[in-house]
Simulated scan of single mutants.
Amino acid sequence: MTAPAGRPRARSPGEAFPPDDVATMRIALALARRGLGNTWPNPAVGAVVWTPGPDGPVILGRGWTQPGGRPHAEPVALAQAGAAARGATLSVTLEPCSHFGKTAPCSHAILDAGIARVVSAIEDPDPRVNGRGHIMMRAHGVTVSVGVLASEARWANRGFIKRIVEGRPMVTLKLARTADGYAAACAGPRLMITGPEAAARVHLMRAQHDVVLVGVGTVLADDPLLTCRLPGLEHRSPVRVVLDTTLRTPPGARIVATAREVPTWIVAALDAPGAAETALAQAGAVVIRVPRAPDGAGLDLLAALAALSARGVTRAFCEGGPRLAESLALAGQVDAVEILTGPDRLGRPGLPSIGPALAQIIERDPQMERGEAVPLGRDAWRSYARRR
């Protein structure tokens, strides 16, 4: 059985996991990724029900968290396995929940199904769980193994973990630049830096995030739609979020005109004009008020991210350009960076794609993992991500 490729996991000397546990956890992690951007405020979890076989694990059921966060991955996998789940093993990317919410606890479903062993990647940091699911299952005779591919699972769940632990979503920046490093010319029409393959990758990344984030300057300059337009994934468009201190977003902007089909939230200062809010609300947009930054020049970005977190957002995809990216870097709120580099040079002075604070993070931060450049048509794509 060939396990899906996964993120390398650093192991301590002498540490080893049973091969079947590793193989099934890799499958569970691949299943979990199907839910990214589609399960918030819940985490995107994957689960596999299996038994050992002569040629590797025999898969009895697979599941991942469904849209809106319910049903959870475990009951989906258990339902697929049916009666065969009794005496089997369940591999799951996050500790099964143990509390009653809008659904019954997954740990109860596991006990009812007769699962004999649970292989769990990491504990759930939610204070309503936080080890209690594992304790409950052990108390009822289930063998529980924790820590298989833990680094990969923390990576996959980093948005959910940040929301629970830090009260903010994970923030991913997307930046496009010319071959000589510019995002835009100083004057003239908007640059078309990258090609269709890069555009398709951006649309896929949108589908894997809860919200796409821009500043009002981007709305005024480009009037973007900010939806996912990949065939078959149109329903996965994220919420559009505009940071707009004084509510300059026009009610006729495309993201407002389509707000009843794809939600649009506009984050504004407490003192932004009430009449502008009324006009936007009548068009279908939601206005969220937060304090200004201490210098009064714009929004308090920490407060803005906290407000998104309070609404359940775990993963934010920032397409707001170099200025917003630099502001988030200065605020220490950058978790991942996706850089798309086109093949052509601007050949004259322009707006640099990467500011000094962001450059410091991606070039010198010891916690920032740097990926290799990957070709996308004539363009190149490179990822950077903070390890924790």
Rank of each mutant, 00 (worst) to 15 (best):
A5H: 11
R7T: 14
P8Y: 09
A10W: 01
A10N: 04
S12N: 06
P13C: 10
G14Y: 10
F17K: 00
D20N: 12
D21I: 09
T24P: 02
A28V: 11
L31K: 08
R34D: 13
G35H: 04
W40C: 12
P43N: 12
P43W: 07
V45T: 12
V45R: 07
G46Q: 00
G46I: 05
A47N: 05
W50Y: 14
G53Q: 07
G53D: 09
P57L: 09
G63E: 09
P67A: 09
P67D: 08
G68Q: 11
G69T: 11
A73L: 05
E74M: 07
A77I: 00
A88W: 10
A88I: 07
S91K: 06
H99I: 12
P105F: 01
S107Q: 08
A109N: 09
A116H: 01
S120E: 03
A121P: 02
D124H: 02
P125G: 01
D126W: 07
R128A: 13
G131W: 05
G131P: 05
H134P: 00
H134T: 14
M136P: 00
T143N: 07
G147H: 03
E152Q: 10
N157K: 05
F160Y: 15
K162L: 14
E166W: 11
E166G: 01
V171D: 03
V171F: 03
R177Q: 15
T178G: 04
D180W: 03
Y182L: 09
C186I: 12
R190Y: 05
L191P: 01
E197M: 13
A199M: 15
A200W: 01
A200V: 09
V202H: 00
L204T: 13
M205H: 11
D210T: 11
V214P: 01
V216Y: 04
P224N: 04
R229K: 12
G232L: 04
P238H: 11
R240I: 07
R240G: 02
I255D: 04
V256W: 04
V256G: 03
A269R: 08
P273Q: 07
G274W: 04
E277D: 08
L280I: 01
A281C: 13
V286D: 08
V290H: 02
G298H: 02
A310K: 13
R311F: 10
R315G: 02
R323S: 13
L324G: 04
A325V: 08
E326A: 00
S327L: 14
S327F: 09
A331W: 12
A336R: 11
A336I: 10
V337L: 12
V337N: 05
P349Q: 00
L351T: 11
P352T: 06
G355I: 02
P356D: 10
P356N: 03
A357H: 14
L358P: 11
A359D: 12
I362P: 02
E363D: 14
Q367K: 09
E369H: 11
E369V: 14
R370S: 10
G371V: 06
E372T: 14
P375Q: 04
G377P: 04
G377W: 10
R378P: 03
A380H: 14
A385R: 15
